[in-house]
Design a protein around this nucleic acid. Structure first.
Lengths: 122, 122
DNA sequence: GTCGTTGCAAAGCGTTTGCAGCCTA
DNA sequence: TAGGCTGCAAACGCTTTGCAACGAC
């Protein structure tokens, strides 16, 4: 069973208090407000731990380094704003994904990324 | 104006003769059949050149290094096999993407990635 | 006191770049 | 012949790992 340390709660907090998926560097910056000596290696190790424990989910966007968000959200996708570069959650899903699946292939999951302008940038 | 060299045609061929998006390493392996002395640096330099010239398109999948395919194809998406790690083209598109767009947002494009088992691995 | 955890630095890994020699035009 | 092109090796940025000191329990 993992131990409770200042580093880990700081990292956990940084992810849960963000209103959008955050990168390891952003997590480091935010968590260093609580634990100034925190190193990036600890952030990566803790992220792997939290992911294995099912507490966070990696958000992988095409051509982007991974971001992280709290786990347990309903099925959703992401919108990447071309201007401000922020990533937003998008509820729902066009349910016709399997219609385009080639014959002989088995579909297990899917990712959809939307691109354009968010409401702020519009 | 770029010069015509054995290296460049070997790289160009490797991409055009593949029936799926290929990674820089796969391109290197294939092109070395024509030019054994070919180095990975030349592959990367040529890829950038071909992309700028509009002859190839990068295929960016979540959490994956970029792959490349010939440009000019019709709108399509990609299937990533969980076992063999290869990427396949998927024709068509579930046309209801904009139904899930949040209010105030403008949709410019989208990426869909399917995951599962390809016909070979199935 | 144990042993999991941390920070630092070094090592990986894929990609880029500097440089001297090569080759197309 | 000139200047773009290539291969090698070193440099890079991000992520992972080895190791000795630290600290939760």
């Amino acid at each position: 069973m993992p131990r409770s340390t200042r580093q880990r709660s700081a990292i956990h907090n940084a992810i849960n208090h963000a209103d959008r998926p955050v990168s390891p560097t952003e997590i480091l910056d935010a968590a260093q407000a609580d634990v100034p000596s925190l190193g990036i290696a600890t952030v990566y190790r803790t992220l792997k731990l939290l992911e294995t424990a099912g507490e966070i989910t990696p958000v992988e966007l095409p051509g982007e380094p991974p971001r992280y968000e709290p786990a347990g959200k309903a099925h959703h996708h992401h919108f990447h704003c071309r201007l401000c570069d922020r990533v937003f959650e998008v509820e729902g899903c066009p349910g016709a994904i399997k219609d385009i699946l080639p014959k002989g292939f088995t579909l297990e999951s899917h990712d959809i990324t939307l691109y354009g302008l968010c409401s702020d940038c519009n």
